[in-house]
Design a protein around this nucleic acid. Structure first.
Lengths: 239, 239
DNA sequence: GCCGGTTTGTGACCCGGTTCACATCCTCTT
DNA sequence: AAGAGGATGTGAACCGGGTCACAAACCGGC
């Protein structure tokens, strides 16, 4: 992992769904205006309130998007993984960033400057379409998150979150799935907006029932079916 | 309030910020494809899961956008008022509606069919820009709502909500503001995702302190300053 | 192979908000 | 004017999760 040459950057841009179907010469121009950025684990990329002058694409690593209260609690909105694009809101409307972004682990990013992106956006209606789709997708996620917050209790929310994480970041193997140590209990707690202790106790309860296991530090789902049944309780149809 | 003729519909469309700067002939074409729809108080316009084949603009009245859990609780995301446009998510991405929409009172809507809207969208980059801005604005609101949910307790959230409602739907008069009977305690509770009783008790507490009054059925803020101070506690800078 | 920082595990206690159960009171309808 | 359906006001009991306070295990680095 390190700096990337022009053709590698082009390839990366082309891979993102956002730039699918955009004319090749335009992509080349865009790639030329792109730089890369390396972040250490825990390094912060931007903070809520900052000016939003760039769009980012994850090449390698994980970036956590979150907000904090000044009593020190944190809420994680999402974890961006390779291929994901983020930072679009402030970039598009010119207002301050709505959330913080910090690298969850050592991370390599592709950085697209605001001016470069907007000039392409102006001339490429297809890009605008993709942006709109991206925003719609994000809206749906946030709506989902919000109704979970309002309606579902901890066991249900944790079951759902684990189900999602396992698909995105784990290895599923029949009715089992391994998440390993990718996410600490503190991190899980921040995703759900609850205390670390509450997560620990729920996992302990499920562990006794044989639904999950926390052997050797890593988290393993032993009974995905039952976990998903927990998640399905009172589920508003996934839309 | 009733049906509108072509020129009135044109005027309404032109008034919405979404169609600002769109070429006149295109607007005329769009207006011609538009119909109006009258809803009674409590009438539902669409439900979560429905196909999203239209975009709506409120001409007169109020529309509540909400989701429900199957244990019967409801959470109100927003109240659309005259001039507001809604229903864009499902319209744009072609997926099912993410929320329910019901008329809060007798309401007149302008209905723009999906096909008509999309054909204009294709040829008008400026409209795409406005859509993007609308979506960004909605994202910011939802982010705000979500962090309130995660971080703020009832008094703070209620103070904030009342502050917002008073600006949007009340009459402010120096340090006082009248909301009248526009919003019942049940409706307030649904906006915050808490029980009706909790709202009642908080209002009673503030009433004793002289911050609000619930005389003659309507809600009046007697001390806007203090209310806003409550709302400002632990406020993540409004972004 | 030991030391400091992080992560996990767990119990005791507390508290905000829910749930339940009523008592008014208000407002529309007929 | 009466009655019905909402909306409001309020107390008692309960409980999910938060907070606090540790103990233990683990992990990387020198």
């Amino acid at each position: 992992m390190g700096r990337l040459d022009q053709s590698e950057r082009q390839a990366l841009i082309r891979r993102s769904f956002l730039f699918k179907d955009v004319a090749q010469p335009i992509l080349d121009r865009l790639a030329a205006l792109t730089v890369t950025k390396q972040l250490d684990r825990r390094e912060t990329l931007f903070n809520r309130g900052d000016e939003g002058d760039a769009l980012y694409a994850v090449v390698d690593g994980l970036v956590r998007i979150w907000v904090g209260s000044d009593s020190g609690k944190e809420l994680t909105f999402s974890i961006m993984e390779p291929g994901d694009v983020f930072g679009e809101i402030a970039l598009l409307d010119g207002l301050p960033r709505t959330a913080n972004a910090t690298a969850q682990e050592a991370t390599l990013l592709l950085v697209i400057q605001r001016s470069a992106f907007l000039s392409v956006l102006e001339g490429e209606p297809i890009l605008a379409r993709h942006i709109i789709e991206l925003l719609c997708e994000r809206m749906r996620r946030k709506t989902e998150l919000l109704s979970d917050f309002a309606f579902a209790d901890l066991p249900v929310r944790l079951a759902r979150k684990l189900g999602d994480l396992v698909v995105a970041h784990g290895e599923i193997d029949g009715n089992e799935a391994r998440l390993g140590k990718r996410f600490s209990q503190t991190e899980l707690a921040q995703m759900l907006g609850v205390s670390r202790e509450a997560i620990n106790k729920q996992l302990a309860a499920w562990s006794h029932k044989g639904i999950v296991s926390t052997e050797d530090g890593g988290l393993t789902i032993l009974d995905l079916g039952t976990l998903r049944a927990h998640a399905a309780v009172d589920r508003v149809d996934p839309v």
